[in-house]
Design a protein around this nucleic acid. Structure first.
Length: 582
DNA sequence: TTAGGGTTAG
């Protein structure tokens, strides 16, 4: 390039295009601009092809203003020029602009092609636009293009229309790995993890070798189902190949969410590159597993040698503080967020602070904080405070808070259940009856509690008083033996928690039918002593089951991990990682 | 001879 300039030579378009490609690959912005000048140096209008190449260069450098000036000055534009602009705006998430260019190009009589559609679909601002684009795609006969197909599947799943996405997938005649990845990712992201794993099996049967994107989605599905053993297998499979940062982060998250922090820490230490997601995953993972102090230590290391913390990192940090009762630290981090990192606190941060104050019993301060918040309090914030009212047995405040929630969400079953439990704990039986009447009057039913355990790649699920498991007789026999043993070390059934089951019979022995107890006993009789017993729950663990699990680890010398919808309880030697504070 | 799709943390 330099010697050409010295001799005043002009290159042919192919040479220019190759030089520009080099600049893009090396991210050499200044050199690229120099070539641009050189192309225009003799005053003639260059060919459209070379303008398109230059346009693409600016787009790849995210220099949309420069691209736009060039585009506006071009004497001639074709579908490639327009599509380059559309994709540039999409890459910079300027979706409104992308859609505008799609309209403008059609107005100028340029027909969008498969390249244009596969790009612009990401810019959909709602289902209406999506349907219109899908119609245009079909009209133009472009719906069989695999790029368009995967983009369609992806955007349907992002807008919660997985059924339509799946229909697009099923119409596919020739296979394509990315289209498979789109549909597997779609199911995994929408929480249909079983289907995601089924499709993954189908994909393998169809002869497609999984790549990193596939396995990242598969890991996400394992995480969603808390399938530690399956996740471990995926990890073992991934180790054999080159791993990228994204899949490594997914591995970290899988181990954290499956409650195996040792594996997560091991994987984290071995990563050659860590980004803000890796650090945030570990901070949140440690905090959710009851290891808040280590989470905060991790945050300190991140500040010392890692990337700059972001919004999500701070959610993890504040979560750690609230779950460990570290009121001062929490306040300190909350107040310094904006000053140190320019992060404006959002709903999640406010929620953590309400939790922080509420758990610590500072209910008045929590209420005051809510009233002084910039945002209008949402049901999540109020529910957090309601949880604190339960822990600190403040039935009056609970009544007020529940009213706030039910004004916004009159059918929120969790609020009714929590309120009823709070009344029950305060022996206010008339109020309990009132809540129950209110619930049945509105046709609200409590979601049944469900616990499950993964044994030998099989999931065993239980609901309250479940009799359907093939080993149920053995389970109850062992349960009776176990209760005898833990009673000797201080277990007394806590009858307050019988009332958690609003719909069922209040039988004296209904406590021993709680689904997590059944799952624990199955784990005890099925797994070798050295293996941790890992239980998953859809609802929060009740106080009686919590005491039961603690004592069982003492008498049976076992390690039990229970995951509820919010956090993990690691039981060992008769104590729980949550410090009985949840 | 230029333009396009799928994957990670709350």
């Amino acid at each position: 390039m330099h010697s050409m300039q010295k001799h005043g030579l002009k290159a042919d378009p192919v040479t220019y295009s190759q030089l520009i490609k080099c600049c893009i690959a090396r991210r050499a912005i200044e050199q690229g601009k120099l070539i641009h000048k050189h192309v225009y140096s003799n005053g003639h209008d260059p060919k459209m092809f070379i303008n398109n190449v230059l346009l693409n260069m600016y787009v790849k450098f995210n220099l949309l203003d420069e691209a736009r000036i060039l585009f506006d000055n071009m004497s001639e534009r074709n579908v490639v020029s327009w599509t380059t602009m559309v994709s540039g705006y999409c890459n910079c998430k300027l979706y409104g602009e992308a859609l505008k260019y799609l309209v403008l190009m059609q107005r100028e009589g340029v027909l969008p092609n498969m390249y244009t559609f596969s790009s612009v679909l990401r810019a959909c601002d709602g289902l209406e636009t999506l349907r219109q684009l899908h119609c245009s795609i079909i009209k133009c006969g472009l719906d069989s293009d695999i790029f368009v197909r995967s983009a369609l599947i992806d955007i349907y799943s992002k807008w919660g229309e997985l059924g339509n996405g799946f229909r697009v997938f099923c119409e596919m005649v020739t296979g394509d790995l990315v289209v498979w990845n789109s549909i597997i990712g779609g199911f995994a992201q929408n929480g249909n993890c079983d289907e995601a794993l089924d499709l993954f099996k189908r994909m393998k049967r169809a002869g497609f070798p999984a790549n990193q994107a596939t396995l990242t989605s598969v890991l996400r599905a394992c995480t969603g189902l808390v399938l530690l053993e399956f996740g471990r297998q995926v990890h073992a499979h991934v180790i054999k190949f080159e791993r990228d940062l994204i899949i490594n982060n997914a591995i970290l998250d899988m181990y954290c969410k499956c409650g195996s922090l040792e594996d997560a820490e091991f994987a984290f230490k071995r990563m050659s590159e860590r980004d803000v997601i890796s650090w945030s995953t570990m901070i949140t993972g440690l905090a959710q597993n009851g290891r808040s102090i280590e989470a905060l230590d991790m945050f300190e290391s991140m500040k010392a040698s890692g990337p700059t913390p972001n919004y999500i990192t701070m959610v993890g940090v504040l979560f750690a503080c609230s779950h460990a009762g570290l009121v001062d630290d929490g306040w300190c981090h909350f107040q310094s967020m904006k000053r140190l990192y320019g992060i404006d606190p959002g709903r999640e941060h406010y929620g953590c602070i309400v939790d922080l104050l509420g758990r610590a019993g500072k209910l008045d301060e929590a209420i005051q904080f809510i009233q002084e918040m910039e945002d209008e309090p949402d049901p999540v914030i109020w529910r957090t405070l309601l949880g604190a009212c339960r822990v600190h047995k403040n039935a009056d405040l609970a009544t007020y808070v529940a009213k706030q929630i039910l004004e916004i969400e009159p059918h929120d079953e969790g609020t009714y259940v929590l309120l009823s439990n709070i009344y029950a704990n305060s022996q206010r039986w008339e109020d309990v009856a009132g809540v129950r009447k209110n619930m049945s009057g509105r046709g609200i039913k409590k979601e049944p509690g469900c616990s499950w355990i993964e044994l030998n790649k099989q999931v065993h699920a239980f609901v309250l008083g479940d009799e359907s498991h093939p080993q149920i007789k053995t389970i109850y026999r062992e349960m009776n033996h176990l209760i005898k043993r833990i009673t000797e070390v201080g277990y007394t059934p806590d009858m307050n928690f019988v009332l958690h089951d609003l719909e069922g019979e209040q039988k004296e022995d209904s406590l021993r039918c709680h689904s997590e107890k059944l799952a624990i006993v199955l784990g005890l009789i099925s797994l070798p002593k050295e293996k941790p017993i890992r239980i998953m729950k859809n609802l929060r663990i009740c106080g009686d089951c919590h005491a039961f699990a603690k004592l069982a680890t003492k008498t049976e010398i076992r390690y039990i991990v229970i995951r509820d919808p919010v956090r993990y309880h690691h039981f060992k030697d008769g104590i729980c990682s949550c410090g009985d504070y949840w």
